[in-house]
Amino acid sequence: MQLTSYLALSAILFSIGLYGVLTKRNAVIVLFCIELMLNAANLNFVAFSKFGLFPGLTGQVFTLFTITIAAAEAAVGIAILIALYRNVQSAEADRYDSMKG
C-alpha cells in the first residue's frame, strides 16, 4: 500500500472540508468542516509516521496533541457560536458581517 494513496485520501477530505467552510451558511456546519480538515491533516501525520522516510512514533504523538487541540477548539468554537447567536439571533455565517468596512 502506497503512501500516496493515504495522502490523496487526506487531500480529498481536506478539499471537501475546505469547500464546506467556503460555502456553507450554517456556522455549525462550518465548524464541522473545520474538524474534517483537521482530521485530514491528522491522517497525513499518521501515514507519514508509518511510511515516511524515518518511520517512528513522533507522528502519532503529534496526532494525539492535535486531537487534544481540536477538542479544545471545538469547545471554544461552540461557545463563541452560542455567544454570537445570542447577539445576532442567527447561526448563519453570512449574517456575521460586522467586519464590513
Binding site: 467556503l22 460555502t23 453570512d94 456575521y96 458581517d97 467586519m99 464590513k100
Partner: peptide, 10 residues
C-alpha cells in the same frame, strides 16, 4: 469587502 469571513477565506 462585505465583512464575511467566508468571502475573505475564498
Amino acid at each position: 469587502q462585505n465583512g464575511q469571513a467566508q468571502t475573505y477565506v475564498l
